[in-house]
């Protein structure tokens, strides 16, 4: 068979035989595309590694000057950033920043975990299809509000019009208003991930429970929630991890006072807000004051990484049950 056979079929089905040069070009193009795709994937891995390397380098430098024991046990955080004549002896105890962070995260959890879980139960077990179609997009909008907007909401509404009305002695900057708004921010995360976990519980389990005379509430609380528990707990942990890392709301509303306290009405400073403060200030790069933010950042990184690993482990276990 020759070229004429092919031409007889018509111009649309004309096939040109490919020469060795074209084949080589094709291989080259494939290899180039392969390389570009690999580079794209590598960028994120490289960035992560570079961040860890930078953090580690500066953190090691910091601990060359400050003992790690002092860092973990000292109850005062007075980095002496201004280096002014005040003459306060510098202290590098992470505990006040840690307590501030945990206070906000705990407050946020108190708000978000029950509300988020109940929302998830409602959406997964009770809401009719049309209502779910309305509520879920609204929750997603809530998740998409810029945190700086939420920060102003915390400062000008929650703090001013709620906390200060209930507790007039409170300062305008306080942990409670930040915690409440961070909690509101992470509700969609809890509800959406928990709902995914509950929706993955097979219908047959629900039917089994209904067939034994269980009510809707009993099916939800005694069968669906326990069966989805690892996914629900994973959503809690991810949300708390997100609350710990939240920056803008706490910078705007929680204050800038490193303060070892468990009173939510106090003004505090979180680790993230401290990093912002130093980054925006005039602390000289390379100075001990500047290096503190890497030590604090490292602490933050280790905390959230641990929480994320735990939640991944739980999610993984959860998947195994029904596959």
């Amino acid at each position: 068979m020759g070229v004429t056979d092919i031409e007889a079929v018509g111009p649309a089905s004309r096939i040109r035989p490919r020469g060795p040069l074209e084949a080589r070009l094709r291989h080259g193009r494939e290899a180039a595309i392969h390389g570009v795709l690999f580079l794209c994937a590598f960028v994120s891995i490289f960035t992560t590694l570079a961040i860890i390397a930078t953090l580690l380098e500066e953190t090691i430098g910091f601990f060359g000057e400050v003992s790690i024991i002092d860092f973990l046990t000292d109850t005062k955080w007075i980095p002496g950033l201004g280096g002014g004549p005040g003459g306060l002896e510098p202290h590098f105890g992470i505990l006040p920043l840690l307590s501030g962070t945990l206070l906000v995260a705990a407050g946020a959890a108190v708000v978000a975990l029950p509300v988020g879980l109940l929302t998830a139960i409602f959406l997964s077990e009770y809401a009719p299809e049309w209502l779910r179609g309305i509520v879920k997009p609204i929750l997603e909008v809530l998740a998409g509000i810029p945190t700086v907007v939420l920060g102003f909401f915390a400062l000008t509404f929650v703090s001013e019009d709620i906390i200060k009305v209930l507790f007039p002695e409170t300062k305008i900057f306080n942990a409670a208003s930040a915690a409440i708004v961070v909690g509101i921010m992470i509700i969609p995360m809890v509800s959406s991930l928990s709902e995914d976990a509950m929706s993955a519980v097979p219908r047959s389990l629900r039917e089994g429970a209904y067939a034994l005379g269980a009510t809707k509430l009993e099916v939800a609380l005694r069968v669906v929630v326990p069966a989805a528990l690892s996914g629900i707990v994973a959503s809690f942990i991810l949300a708390i991890s997100r609350a710990i890392g939240e920056t803008m709301i706490v910078t705007l509303a929680a204050g800038a006072t490193p303060n070892l306290t468990w009173n939510p009405l106090d003004s505090i400073q979180t680790m993230t807000a401290y990093i912002v403060q130093v980054s925006l200030g005039e602390t000289a790069q390379g100075s001990l004051g500047f290096r503190t933010i890497f030590a604090v950042g490292m602490t933050l990184f280790v905390m959230t990484l641990t929480l994320n690993v735990i939640s991944q482990y739980l999610l993984h276990r959860f998947r195994e049950v029904y596959e």
Binding site: L205, E207, A211, V223, P226, A227, V321
Partner: peptide
């Protein structure tokens, strides 16, 4: 009471 096609014990 009811028993289903596929065994569906609770976990």
């Amino acid at each position: 009471g009811m028993v289903f096609q596929k065994p569906n014990p609770f976990p």
